[in-house]
Amino acid sequence: MRYAQGGGLTAKRRQDREEVRLQAAQRFARGEATAVIAADLRVSERSVERWHRSRREGGAPARASKGSAGRPKLTDAQFALLEEELVKGPAAHGWPDQRWTLERIKTVIARRFHLTCPVAGVWRLLHRHGWSWQAPARQAWERDRRRWSCGEEGRLAARKSTAAARGAWLVFEDEAGFSMTPPRARTWGRRGRTPLVRVRGRSWRRLSIAAMCCYKPGERARFIYRPRSYRRGVHERPSFAWTDYRDLARCAHLQLGGPIVPLWDNLNTHLTAGMRRYVDEHEWLTVFQLPAYATELNPVEGIWSLLRRGPLANTAFVDAEHLTRTLRRSLRRIQYRPDLINGCLTETGLAPTDRHPTPSRKDQ
């Protein structure tokens, strides 16, 4: 073929196509055979016959290229309107879930602009305007984005200023659980045959980890964690108690060598009377709560994501010791990579500040 699939989309490609058709028309006039013209111009005989028929019916203007047949004829202004419709979400257009597919976008184009186009044309249209197929992030319905932007952002800035004024470490804390069933990740396989990851069909072993990402301007980022194993059927607490968080905060204080300002979620264990009493009794400890349903503001969530997408993905754990060993080795590597810890903080859009708050003047 002289031009590949989708040729003629740009002005230059359309001009090249018209030149090929002009050469074919000149050879038609000389009476050359269709097969000879197709071989010399490196196009199919069907295309040559179609050009010859359009020339007989429409004359010279019929040789002009109309672009790719599968290209949706949407201008930039029309695509901007299409983007507004897509931002509304599939639910606003009558679909039960929140997943955009090429077929659904094709339907929206037909409803909004009264144009029909193939699925491949929709894909090329989206790709040309910077859209891609990707997994969405989750956000709780209870999260009020407007309230966060107006109120919680200012309160979080005050917490960072408090840490800077006291020369303290800003510490983000979170906990997660890991079981013998590994998280799934994409892998290569033969088309039509889904790859299988063989795991233990039944295991009550579980490992919980409470971790802290520690930041301070001018200091290397630190990562501190404490594991806790649990086996179902044994009469023991399946999760961390407030005394475990107390010991973790004390350990962070000793390792960092200074006061700390932990920021954690509203877990009921964090709000117990014993924990509040311990915070009130120690000046080096100042605790704040993160906004509700705002997991994307906690850099420790990025650490869990690194684990689930990296060393834990598709791993067939033999026993609980294998799981524990893999987790400890992976977390130890993260501890020696402050760039990863800083990257998790950058992903949240937050940054520690070394500016001290300016005290307000009282009226004289």
Score class of each variant (00 low, 15 high):
Tyr293Gly: 12
Trp169Gln: 02
Ala4Phe: 03
Leu345Asn: 04
Ala294Asn: 11
Arg30Leu: 12
Leu254Glu: 15
Arg63Val: 04
Ser203Gly: 10
Leu307Phe: 01
Arg228Phe: 09
Arg246His: 06
Trp169Thr: 10
Asp354Gly: 07
Arg328Ile: 03
Arg329Phe: 08
Val43Met: 05
Arg325Met: 07
Arg166Ser: 00
Thr353Asn: 02
Lys160Asp: 10
Ala39Asp: 13
Ala35Trp: 13
Thr269Lys: 02
Trp100Ala: 01
Lys362Arg: 14
Arg30Asn: 01
Gly349Lys: 06
Arg146Trp: 05
Trp169Tyr: 14
Leu340Arg: 11
Ala176Met: 10
Leu290Ser: 02
Ala110Asp: 04
Trp304Glu: 09
Ala62His: 09
Arg145Gly: 08
Glu283Cys: 00
Arg193Lys: 13
Ile109Ser: 03
Met1Gly: 11
Leu312Val: 02
Leu125Thr: 01
Asp144Gly: 05
Glu142His: 14
Met275Asn: 14
Gly258Arg: 00
Gly201Asp: 09
Ala4Gln: 11
Gly167Arg: 00
His127Val: 01
Tyr293Pro: 10
Pro259Gly: 02
Arg155Leu: 12
Trp264Phe: 01
Ala140Asp: 08
Leu271Gln: 11
Ala241Ile: 06
Cys251Trp: 12
Arg193Gly: 03
Thr10Ser: 15
Glu103Lys: 07
Arg228Lys: 15
Pro96Ala: 09
Gln364Ala: 14
Pro182Arg: 00
His356Thr: 10
Trp148His: 15
Ala77Gln: 13
